[in-house]
């Protein structure tokens, strides 16, 4: 039993670290995309392309750079999570009503002041929704970690498969599904709350 809890903890740790890093990078790239439109087109194309690489192939490529272990898994998740975060940040910022953008400019806010005082607060629900999608996806992708020597629930599932032990497979798979449902539910609630406020 304690083995399961350790695995759940490791699984969550890998995912949250990856999503944390990806959010920082993704939101910054989203802001840059918003500021420099041609860059935005390129970045979103790039993130979409990353998404099309099969996860196993991506992890194998990253393994060449980072070797075996959790770091490789985190790097893979960071790349996979970029698309929804960059795209939602970009879309959220771009959909700030133009009259609000004009009002903030006309009142004498600098570019950064406009971003932090007006544009980001207004786009928060959209950005948050991108993070949610990334997180829920990552919970399932992280199961692949077992193939590149990373920790997490994938290990339990993999061993279950090898032993043809259904109970063991379920012990690993059910927590993944439950976590995904739970995170989706809680974060959707938070998202609603954020959009009502705005």
């Amino acid at each position: 039993m304690s083995e399961l809890f350790v695995a759940i903890f490791q699984h969550l740790l890998i995912v949250t670290v990856a999503i944390g890093i990806s959010s920082i990078i993704g939101i910054i790239l989203g802001i840059l995309s918003y500021w420099v439109r041609p860059l935005g087109t390129f970045l979103i194309w790039f993130a979409e392309m990353l998404q099309t690489i099969p996860s196993l192939a991506l992890l194998a490529l990253l393994m060449i750079i980072f070797g075996l272990g959790n770091i490789t898994m985190i790097a893979g998740l960071v790349l996979y999570a970029l698309l929804p975060i960059v795209r939602n940040t970009y879309t959220g910022l771009s959909s700030v009503p133009s009259h609000l953008r004009e009002a903030s400019k006309g009142m004498g806010m600098s570019r950064l002041q406009r971003l932090f005082q007006v544009e980001i607060p207004i786009s928060i629900p959209m950005i948050f929704s991108g993070v949610k999608i990334a997180l829920v996806n990552s919970l399932s992708i992280a199961v692949m970690g077992v193939l590149i020597g990373a920790d997490g629930l994938g290990y339990i599932i993999y061993r279950g498969i090898q032993q043809q032990n259904f109970a063991r497979i379920l012990t690993g798979a059910v927590p993944v599904v439950l976590m995904a449902i739970l995170f989706d539910y809680v974060m959707t609630k938070i998202e609603r709350f954020l959009s009502i406020k705005c």
Binding site: H99, L100, Q117, P121, I122, K197
Partner: peptide
């Protein structure tokens, strides 16, 4: 930016910030 701070500006769509 400094010039605009010294000039009041009112627009048709009002443009109050909904987050404030």
């Amino acid at each position: 930016v400094e010039l605009r701070r010294k000039i009041g500006y009112v627009i048709q769509q009002i443009g109050l910030f909904p987050n404030m």
